[in-house]
Simulated scan of single mutants.
Amino acid sequence: MEHAFGPYMKQLREQQGFSINQLAEAAGISNSQISRIENGVRGVPKPATIRKIADALAVPYSDMMKQAGYMETGLEANPQEVPEWATYKDRRDFKKMLEDDDDLMFDGIPLDEEDKKRIKDVLTGLFWEAKQMNKRKKPGESDQRP
Rank of each mutant, 00 (worst) to 15 (best):
R92L: 11
L98F: 04
D90S: 06
D107P: 01
W85P: 01
A86K: 01
L104A: 07
K95L: 11
E99N: 12
D102W: 04
I109H: 11
G108H: 05
D112E: 15
D107W: 02
D90T: 12
L111S: 10
R92Y: 09
E99R: 14
D102N: 12
P110L: 11
E84T: 00
M97H: 02
Y88F: 08
R92A: 10
K95W: 05
D100R: 05
D107I: 02
L104Q: 04
T87F: 09
D103N: 08
W85A: 05
D107F: 03
K96D: 14
T87S: 15
E99L: 14
D102L: 12
A86E: 05
D93S: 09
D100A: 12
D90Y: 06
D112H: 04
A86M: 02
T87C: 06
F94T: 02
D93K: 00
E99D: 10
E99T: 14
I109C: 13
K96H: 11
R92V: 07
R92P: 00
L98Y: 09
R91L: 06
K95S: 12
K95F: 03
R92H: 06
P110V: 05
D100K: 05
M97V: 03
D103G: 14
D100I: 03
M105F: 12
F106C: 01
M97D: 00
R92D: 11
K96Q: 13
A86Y: 02
P110W: 03
M105H: 06
D107E: 12
D103W: 07
D107H: 06
D93W: 02
K89V: 13
D100N: 15
M105C: 13
L104W: 08
A86F: 02
P83R: 01
M105V: 08
L104C: 10
L104I: 09
T87W: 07
Y88S: 10
L98R: 14
D101A: 15
M97N: 00
W85R: 06
R91P: 00
M105D: 04
K95M: 11
R92C: 06
L104M: 15
M105E: 14
L111D: 11
R91F: 04
F106Y: 11
R91Q: 04
D90N: 12
G108N: 08
D101Q: 13
K95Q: 11
L111H: 07
T87P: 01
D101M: 09
F106R: 00
K95A: 10
E99F: 12
A86N: 05
F106Q: 02
D103R: 06
E84L: 03
P110K: 08
K95C: 03
K96Y: 09
Y88Q: 03
L98W: 07
D103F: 13
W85H: 07
D93T: 03
D101S: 14
D112R: 01
M105S: 10
P83E: 04
D102F: 11
D107T: 02
D103H: 13
I109G: 02
I109Q: 12
R92E: 14
D93Q: 11
R92M: 09
M97F: 12
W85D: 05
D112Q: 05
D93H: 08
L111C: 10
D112V: 00
D103Q: 15
K89N: 09
K89I: 15
M97A: 12
R91V: 14
K96M: 03
W85N: 04
